[in-house]
Simulated scan of single mutants.
Amino acid sequence: MIIKIDFGNDFIQYLSCSSKVGRKMNCIQGNFLQWIFNEEKNTKYWALDNGERIPNYDAIAIVEWLNNVGFKKGIVKAKIITNPQLKVKKNLYY
């Protein structure tokens, strides 16, 4: 399944995942956001902005979370794609 991720300001990325994972993306979006905003569990995707630490992420962080945190067991669940050849099945907004 191809998922279009819109981060606003014309920044769009695509990921490919199994249909089973893709169907759950709206439900698990909240779990990802809890992880990305938890500075104790996740420091890789934080940056300084005017002296304040803020989360700084893109689809790479979502793929990392899907493959290593959200669905730990099994094979790789998702990957980034640059030019989707198939129709986008789902849109997510961050």
Rank of each mutant, 00 (worst) to 15 (best):
K24V: 04
L33C: 06
M1N: 08
I3E: 10
F32T: 03
K79A: 15
K89F: 08
K4A: 07
R23W: 04
I54K: 06
D6I: 06
K41V: 01
D6H: 08
D58M: 01
S19P: 02
K87D: 12
Q13V: 01
F37E: 06
K72Y: 03
C27A: 13
V76A: 14
V21P: 03
A78K: 07
N68V: 08
K4N: 07
F7T: 04
N67H: 03
S18K: 08
N26Q: 09
A59Q: 00
S16P: 07
A59R: 01
K44P: 03
D58I: 03
I75H: 14
G22W: 00
C17H: 02
W46H: 14
M1E: 08
N38D: 15
F32P: 05
S18Q: 02
E40A: 08
A47F: 04
Q29H: 15
K89T: 11
I62N: 00
F37V: 03
N91P: 09
N83Q: 14
N91V: 11
I36G: 04
E64R: 07
K44W: 02
Q34C: 12
N31R: 13
M25P: 02
N42I: 06
C17D: 04
S19Q: 04
Q34E: 14
N38T: 13
I62Y: 09
I2Y: 14
E52T: 08
N42C: 07
N38S: 15
M1T: 04
R23M: 02
L48P: 05
V63C: 00
F71D: 04
A61L: 00
E39L: 09
P84I: 10
A59F: 02
N91Y: 15
Q29C: 12
E40R: 11
L86D: 14
Q29M: 13
C27Q: 12
N50P: 03
G30D: 12
F71N: 05
I80R: 09
I75T: 15
P55F: 02
F7I: 06
Y45E: 05
V69I: 15
I80S: 10
D58P: 01
K89Q: 15
G51C: 09
P84R: 11
Q34R: 13
Y57Q: 05
E52V: 15
C27R: 14
N91T: 08
K73P: 00
I2P: 04
Y57S: 01
